[in-house]
Simulated assay, not measured.
Amino acid sequence: MRFGGHETFAVRETWLSKGLRLAAEDAHAFDDPLVADSLGVGVNMAKSIRHWLRLTRLAASLGKDGFAPTPLGRLVLKHDPAMLRPATWWALHVNVASQSGEAVAWHWIFSRFPGDHRFDRRQCAEALNRHLEAEGHRMPSPRSVSSDIAVLLSSYAKPVPPSDEDPEEAVDPPFRQLGLMVHYRASDTFRIDRGPKPIPPEILCYSLATTFMGERSAGGWFDVHMREAVGRPGGPGRVLALSSDAFAACLAETERVLGRTSLRSEMLGGDRVIRVPAFPSADWLAEHFRRAG
């Protein structure tokens, strides 16, 4: 179970695309003491870029062979090297928020924290501490928890009303553009938005594959009960911050756009079951790039 690693920095625009290109050009670039100069950032920012590349699964350590793009990273470099497509950021968000052992605060806030009503930073950190204690985990320092919560909220919460004073907020951090969380500036409180969102259809399949495919694929398909897809921690309903109604709407749109050969839902024994082809999650992002041209 890990906390920190981000050096208190949320992901910024261009950071991951720069870092990914550098890792592709030289697998040992991030071992170089001067890597910050190559990236055009400060030393701690360079450490943060490496952390986020690893956490989003765009790049991975190869031990003595360095640090290089994963198959997902190579796919993004080929089809969206500047990382301008929303589907890329949706996929990276799924990668971060669905894993419980690395991005503990991210997994917890989207999968277990009832953030539908407004909350502040202190309430959020205290709730995470109570959760960790109840689960019997080794307790991190209060500073580590507070730091992770601060970075998470800074990453995702879109200010309301928008700030016209802080130059750091002139361009939203990329994850804010997903519309998952709101920051009410007047009261300095936050809320998770579980309503409908413009989620690319392939991303629903990407999230289903990330969470469920390894457990139950057989015969080229895997089945997920609707209630699991909506409510399971790390699953698409939680990670994509969708209420039951919003998930049903997203599922219907996915079926309409992709067709029933790519995904279909049907009633079995009084329960709705989603049937998905057993493709690796990255294949769904590749399919989105193909469909989007």
Rank of each mutant, 00 (worst) to 15 (best):
G214N: 05
P161A: 08
R176L: 03
T210C: 06
G219P: 07
R232A: 14
E215D: 14
L208S: 00
D148P: 04
V230S: 12
L178F: 07
P233I: 07
L153M: 08
M226Y: 15
V151Y: 10
S163W: 07
T189S: 10
R143K: 15
E168K: 15
R227F: 11
G219V: 08
G231N: 15
H137E: 14
E215I: 06
D164S: 11
E165S: 13
S207T: 11
F212T: 04
E133L: 14
P236T: 11
R176V: 05
P162C: 01
V160L: 13
A157V: 04
A218T: 13
D166A: 08
L153S: 05
A229I: 10
G234A: 07
L180W: 04
F190G: 01
L204R: 09
G231Y: 14
T211E: 15
I149N: 01
Y206T: 08
F190S: 01
G220V: 03
S155I: 07
C205N: 06
V182W: 04
E215M: 12
A229C: 08
M181K: 03
V224M: 06
M226K: 09
S187E: 15
D188V: 03
D172C: 08
M181T: 06
S147P: 00
V160S: 11
D223T: 08
P233F: 07
V160Y: 11
L180V: 00
F190D: 02
D166H: 04
A229L: 06
Q177W: 01
A170K: 14
T189F: 03
L178C: 05
T189Y: 05
R194W: 06
F222K: 04
C205L: 15
V182T: 14
A186W: 02
G179E: 04
V230L: 12
A150N: 13
D172A: 15
S144Y: 12
E165T: 14
V160C: 07
E168C: 01
E168V: 10
G235C: 10
P159R: 05
L153W: 07
D164M: 13
R185H: 01
P198R: 08
L153G: 00
S155F: 05
N129P: 10
T210I: 00
P162M: 10
E169Y: 07
F175T: 00
D148H: 09
A218G: 11
R138H: 11
G220I: 01
R232S: 09
F212A: 05
I192C: 07
E228K: 10
S207E: 10
A157Q: 06
G220R: 03
E202F: 05
P142L: 02
G231F: 10
A186H: 14
E165C: 09
V230P: 05
L153D: 01
T210M: 06
Y184S: 01
S147W: 03
V224S: 06
L152W: 12
H131F: 15
A157H: 04
I203A: 01
P200M: 08
L180F: 02
